[in-house]
Amino acid sequence: MPKTLNPLQLVADRWQPSARFVQRAAFACVVMAVIIVVTGGAVRLTQSGLGCPTWPTCTEDSLTPTPEMGINGVIEFTNRMLTYVLCAVVGLAITAARARAPRRRSLTRLGWAQFWLVASNGIIGGITVLTGLNPYIVASHFLAATALLTVAVVMWRRASEGDEEPRDLVARPVRQLGWVLVVATALLIVIGTVVTGSGKHAGDAKKDVHRIPLDVREITQLHVDLVCVVLGLVVALWFVLRAVKAPAGTHRGVVELFGVLMLQGTIGFVQYVNDSPELLVGTHMLGSCLVWIAVLRVFLSLRDRGELHASVPAPSGGHDTLQPAAASSR
């Protein structure tokens, strides 16, 4: 019986990417995940949410936007096409991770998790259009994109470290404080989607789009309160890490997170007092991604999984030997 050929195995037999290439492919996934969030926000902020009034085609009779649909149809359709670019980047990361020797199943699983998140979020995006920009579906669309960003960041981190069992670099209570920071930031992002769903930018000016029936000022105040909680946790974590003499890299990550949070808070304040101008709202969405990336990086820096190893063919025999990768690959 002929042996079943796996296309990824065929690639692995003919191509051996470097550790740096795999890391860059994983980082490209992070960049594309951020771009998808920002361009999705641009669709809403330019009132192009129903630029293509149906899905998966743009109209019932056309796959692409027609001239009568104007710039809104072009913006919405372009955002849909970016999904294919994202799929290509994720596909490259999966292929590079699979072709890299020694094979790291944990890395390829993270790549496939991104693929299925992209596919599922594409369906959620279609439901968003078919339901006339229902704010709850819009919020779930954003949160699914944030989940994609989460997996992309984890894959990026895992691509630069080994496969040993995780070893805490700090005491367990400090690690738990890191968990609390992650949960609080996640809640902050969720409440941010509620603020958006009850606010002024519904996504389409030609249709009476349903909004979440909450007082936008009250829900915004809750959002601000959570910002204060997250800032407090970041400051507390910084002091604790200094007290326990944690690695310098972890300290640096907390300082970077604090800086991003302060910048994001400033943008949010200016946005609020100026009645949410579109450009600032879009910038705030970008800031949301950067805050989440910084939080994840801090949390992941609290543990270590050993050195990344490179595969080097042995002088004789058919087996690979493992040795630590160059520091530039870390």
Score class of each variant (00 low, 15 high):
Val291Met: 04
Leu5Pro: 03
Val190Trp: 01
Asn121Met: 06
Leu86Met: 14
Arg14Ile: 04
Met32Arg: 06
Leu82Arg: 02
Val216Cys: 00
Val30Ser: 06
Leu286Thr: 09
Ile35Gln: 04
Gly70Trp: 11
Gly249Val: 05
Ser106Lys: 11
Met1Lys: 12
Val291Trp: 02
Val37Cys: 03
Met81Val: 04
Pro53Asn: 07
Ala93Met: 11
Leu110Gln: 10
Thr250Met: 01
Phe269Trp: 14
Ile191Arg: 06
Cys87Gln: 11
Asp275Val: 04
Gln323Tyr: 01
Ala144Pro: 06
Gly197His: 09
Thr78Asn: 04
Arg104Pro: 02
Pro166Arg: 09
Leu222Gly: 12
Glu256Asp: 02
Thr185Gln: 12
Ala147Leu: 14
Met155Ile: 06
Pro173Ser: 00
Val174Asn: 03
Ser329Trp: 12
Asn274Val: 08
His210Lys: 15
Gly70Arg: 13
Leu5Ala: 14
Met262Ile: 12
Lys207Met: 13
Pro213Val: 02
Thr64Gly: 07
Thr193Asn: 00
Gly232Phe: 07
Ala326Asp: 15
Asn79Tyr: 01
Ser62Arg: 13
Leu110Thr: 10
Leu302Ile: 07
Val230Glu: 06
Leu92Cys: 13
Arg103Ser: 08
Thr266Cys: 11
Ser301Phe: 03
Leu143Cys: 00
Gly125Arg: 01
Val38Tyr: 06
Gln264Ala: 15
Leu261Cys: 13
His141Tyr: 10
Ala294Glu: 00
Val194Asn: 07
Ala96Glu: 06
Asp304Pro: 05
Phe269Arg: 13
Ala294Arg: 03
Ala310Asp: 15
Ala119Phe: 14
Ala325Phe: 07
Ala99Pro: 02
Asn134His: 13
Val270Gln: 10
Thr321Ser: 12
Arg217Asp: 07
Leu117Cys: 08
Phe77Gln: 03
Val209Glu: 00
Asp61Asn: 14
Leu302Cys: 10
Thr220Tyr: 07
Gln23Leu: 04
Val312Gly: 04
Thr220Asn: 09
Ala113Arg: 13
Leu187Ile: 14
Gln16Trp: 06
Cys289Val: 05
Ala186Arg: 06
Thr321Glu: 13
His309Lys: 13
Ile36Val: 14
Leu117Phe: 12
Ser311Trp: 12
Leu290Val: 01
Leu261Ile: 10
Glu165Tyr: 11
Leu214Pro: 05
Asn121Phe: 05
Arg211Pro: 01
Asn72Gln: 14
Leu187Val: 14
Phe21Ala: 15
Phe239Gly: 05
Ile189Pro: 05
Val260Phe: 02
Asn6Gln: 05
Gly268Ser: 07
Gly203Asp: 01
Val244Arg: 07
Lys245Cys: 03
Val209Ile: 15
Val229Ala: 12
